Simulated assay, not measured.
Amino acid sequence: MKLARVIHQGRIKLALVEEEGLEVLLLDRLLAHDPNPVRTVIERRLSAKELVDAATGRAAFDEVTFLSPLSQLVRNVFAVGKNYVDHAREFDTSGFNATSGAAAIPSSPQFFTKATTSLAGPTDPIVFSEATTSSVDYEGEIGVVIARECRNVPEGEALDAVFGFVALNDLTARDLQRSHVQWFLGKSLDTFCPLGPWITTIDQAPVESLRVRTWVNGELRQDAPLSDLIFSVPKLIATLSSAMTLLPGDIIATGTPVGVGIGFSPPRFLRDGDVVRVSATGLGELRNTVKVVIR
Score class of each variant (00 low, 15 high):
160 D>T: 11
164 G>T: 07
134 S>H: 14
107 S>E: 15
212 V>T: 09
172 T>K: 00
84 Y>T: 07
78 F>R: 04
163 F>D: 01
105 I>P: 03
264 F>D: 05
248 P>W: 02
25 L>D: 06
4 A>I: 03
213 R>V: 11
259 G>P: 05
106 P>C: 09
284 G>H: 11
236 L>R: 03
123 T>H: 01
163 F>Y: 07
185 L>H: 07
117 T>D: 05
49 K>W: 12
256 T>C: 12
75 R>Y: 11
169 N>A: 06
23 E>F: 01
198 W>G: 00
121 G>K: 00
88 A>W: 01
202 I>E: 07
39 R>D: 01
218 G>R: 06
195 L>K: 07
16 L>Y: 06
72 Q>I: 02
255 G>A: 06
127 V>F: 08
141 E>N: 08
264 F>W: 11
51 L>E: 05
176 L>M: 10
278 V>R: 07
129 S>D: 13
255 G>F: 06
215 W>S: 07
151 R>W: 11
1 M>N: 06
158 A>R: 04
209 S>A: 15
284 G>M: 04
189 L>Q: 10
149 E>Y: 10
52 V>W: 10
150 C>N: 13
280 A>P: 05
69 P>L: 09
32 A>Q: 08
85 V>C: 02
135 S>V: 08
3 L>Q: 02
208 E>S: 13
141 E>R: 09
232 S>D: 03
178 R>C: 05
